[in-house]
Amino acid sequence: MKKLIFLSLLAVTGFAHAVPNVWQSSYAQGFSEYSIQDTKGNTLWVTCNDGAGDDYDHSVRFQTPKKSYENSDSKYPLTFLLDGKSKVAASASTKWRNGANAWYEFSQGISKAKKIDVYLNNKKVTTMTPTPNSIKSVAKHIATCNAMF
């Protein structure tokens, strides 16, 4: 009986984690949300405003089991090295020229990256290696998320 209750709680609370290194997506209230998780339970979230209104913007968030991190328009604790060659860091807002340019580089690169090194305050915290099928079927759509500029 205790096992049944525990399994029911896991299902209800969403405790079950995603399969590592597989891009996933969902859509709600005008936002497309893309996520990929590493083997340690760290998750990269990319959120695109597909129709939530002009008051909202796109976002990138990196979540560890204990804390969540995002860039602002002036501070960039999160940077990503894509395929070992392109360093990108998305701004908090895409409604200005530099933010729009940074978002373009980020969205175009992350949408096809086979290796994503995540840096927090210039220190590498994890590497994600998305499966080819999840890049082709899910991550490629991040490239269509245009800046709000």
Score class of each variant (00 low, 15 high):
11 A>D: 01
32 S>E: 13
18 A>C: 07
69 Y>E: 05
110 I>R: 08
22 V>R: 11
50 D>A: 04
54 D>S: 14
62 F>N: 06
148 M>S: 11
61 R>F: 00
30 G>R: 05
115 K>Q: 13
99 G>Y: 08
56 Y>E: 08
120 L>W: 15
126 T>R: 04
30 G>Y: 15
77 P>I: 02
6 F>G: 00
68 S>T: 14
109 G>V: 11
1 M>R: 03
91 S>G: 01
131 T>F: 00
42 N>G: 12
38 D>P: 07
36 I>P: 06
76 Y>A: 08
138 V>P: 04
130 P>H: 00
40 K>C: 01
82 L>M: 07
145 C>G: 08
23 W>T: 13
50 D>E: 13
77 P>K: 02
73 D>P: 00
20 P>E: 15
78 L>V: 12
83 D>T: 05
70 E>D: 06
8 S>N: 01
31 F>C: 11
73 D>V: 04
80 F>Q: 05
18 A>V: 03
11 A>E: 01
132 P>F: 00
39 T>L: 10
65 P>S: 03
112 K>T: 15
58 H>Y: 14
54 D>Q: 09
7 L>Y: 13
107 S>Q: 14
95 K>G: 04
5 I>Y: 09
129 T>N: 11
31 F>N: 14
37 Q>V: 13
62 F>C: 03
73 D>T: 11
26 S>A: 11
104 Y>N: 10
101 N>S: 12
30 G>C: 06
43 T>I: 15
68 S>K: 11
91 S>A: 10
74 S>M: 03
71 N>D: 02
119 Y>T: 06
41 G>Q: 05
2 K>E: 13
60 V>G: 06
147 A>V: 08
29 Q>C: 06
125 V>A: 02
68 S>V: 14
73 D>E: 08
25 S>A: 12
102 A>E: 09
78 L>G: 08
41 G>E: 06
39 T>M: 12
7 L>V: 03
36 I>L: 13
23 W>C: 12
60 V>Q: 07
75 K>F: 01
73 D>F: 00
46 V>Y: 15
148 M>T: 09
10 L>G: 09
126 T>N: 12
69 Y>L: 04
80 F>N: 05
14 G>K: 10
29 Q>P: 01
101 N>F: 02
105 E>F: 12
43 T>W: 00
102 A>Q: 12
10 L>Y: 01
38 D>M: 10
98 N>E: 13
32 S>L: 05
130 P>S: 05
98 N>M: 08
19 V>D: 14
86 S>C: 00
50 D>M: 12
109 G>Q: 12
82 L>F: 15
65 P>R: 03
12 V>Y: 02
51 G>D: 11
12 V>C: 06
143 A>P: 03
52 A>F: 10
61 R>A: 10
25 S>P: 10
129 T>D: 07
97 R>A: 09
11 A>W: 00
65 P>V: 09
58 H>K: 03
1 M>E: 10
33 E>N: 14
94 T>C: 06
